[in-house]
Design a protein around this nucleic acid. Structure first.
Lengths: 139, 139
DNA sequence: ATCCGTGCAAATCCTTTGCATGCTC
DNA sequence: GAGCATGCAAAGGATTTGCACGGAT
């Protein structure tokens, strides 16, 4: 749940302009789903501002991701990107049937790559994703 | 490193026909890269059988994945699917710069979801992916 | 002989790009 | 006023689909 003012400040401080379109997109991110897709944002924005283009939505989401205001999440094999408004370190639990996505607020600090497996790589981060069936899909 | 005969047997036992195209694709999977893309398979197949279509390659890879002969891997944000010919339980180490992908042969059995986080989900599997820079990309 | 599998081309889905207009700073 | 941001439409890349033909069993 990011704070709208914080997101706006990210744009301002990087010398970008605050347009009505950007403000609307940021408002939706601050209030809506935790893992929206670009298309969901587009549908919601155009409900209020009919002429906003997908290009603007994609553009804004990209820049915000570059500024660290959202994270990109693509590990679910859905064929499209999700934007994760939770920028704290966390992991995911994904229902392979209905694609419901839940945050796991556990850091898995114990997950470390055995050095003999690291083959000289400099590890920057790791992601643990659980795949399963949500309660509704276990029938 | 799957065995060609095993892959062929998967098709046979499920009542599917062994065509020259399928055999060629399976041979490439049995001998080639551990994490090929559909396009790479297509390029390699057409080098020997010029008229094979992408549809056949995608089709064969799909069916083989459904039969468990390969795993689909999409957690790298490249915008396309990779097929993982290593069907043993394992995890991945990915270079975010050159996209080199290495298998981690460690089971991370200690990674379990705290039950209070599972929110009723039936967990089927989990994937640990490390993102970093390979030795060549650390300059 | 029966189907399943194939190649082709077009279609689809998500995302990106080019460009002239318009608005924020 | 300067320059970035916008909308539009077209392009792009990966993958899927429809369909008539051909080959495997």
């Amino acid at each position: 749940m990011p704070d709208l003012e914080v997101l706006i400040e990210l744009f301002r401080q990087s010398g970008r302009k605050i347009t009505p379109q950007r403000r609307a997109i940021l408002e939706l991110l601050a209030q809506g789903s935790v893992h929206p897709t670009a298309e969901e944002i587009y549908q919601q924005v155009t409900a209020m501002m009919p002429d906003v283009s997908r290009a603007t939505v994609y553009n804004t989401l990209h820049e915000l991701a570059a500024l660290g205001g959202v994270n990109e999440a693509f590990e679910f094999g859905e064929g499209f990107m999700r934007y994760d408004t939770n920028t704290q370190a966390h992991h995911h639990l994904f229902c392979i049937r209905c694609h419901t996505l839940v945050d796991i607020n556990h850091d898995f600090a114990e997950v470390a790559l055995p050095s003999e497996e690291a083959v000289g790589y400099q590890i920057l981060r790791h992601r643990v994703t659980f795949y399963g069936l949500c309660p509704d899909c276990q029938s």
